[in-house]
Amino acid sequence: MLILNESKQMSGNSLSLRPGINANGARLSDCQDCTQMTDDWIDDIIKGFKPSENGVSLDFTSLDQSLLDALNLSGDILSLFDNDERYAVKIKVGQTQLDRNGNPVNAQTGRASSGTMSVITFNPDYLNRATDLAIARTAIHELVHAYLQYIIQHVPNSELGTTLDSLIFQHNFWLIPGEPQHVLMAEQFVSAIALSLSNSDGFQHAAIEYQRLTWSGGMRESATYEQIPQGERNAIIARDQIESGDPRNTLPVSPLGTKSC
């Protein structure tokens, strides 16, 4: 595993970015006083993801009960990368691509051209305004993307890889809505993401709130999401708006998490 965040990234690697600082050394955030806090913030959140205590990373390549019950999804994924010299994940802060509404995505996961590394990029503005809960949710979401990229590269014939291949096929023929990785996450990973988020947060809040936060980004364009009753989908969108610190938010509901600044 290679996490190039504050503690490891000053290696001279051109891809290594200090959180809040772009490749030219310029600050990416308007919230300059908060930059150092944001550095610590994302560092602490990622370090807070612990692997399962038995010391053995769970095998999520089989879509069985162990995935549904997973309490340490993000920690186990990080542990997997840590133990596999063929693959690494790099975490950085920087500009992210724009979505269809012209707004930067909260975070994105790409794959280095070598095919041996996933690169997770967090948008600095998102880190400055979102609560720790929202950021942890996003971090787990992106780590699942990294894991799926790893599966495609190294374990293509697993049950997980085969399911993903099938979804890609169906998506290409317009048979299912949503981007395939998000569809797979909506179908198979909701429970594990929600449980792992609860676990990393010490189960401070009602389980339903962690589940709501789990439905993020492209997962909300899946057929699975569309089967959730309308009232609950409204609650999912509202909770996301509150925890993401959207500057346009005026909902009279307090965030569950805390902000870095």
Partner: peptide, 8 residues
């Protein structure tokens, strides 16, 4: 929705 939710 409005405000629109960001992707990730």
């Amino acid at each position: 929705s409005y405000p629109p939710r960001a992707n990730e």
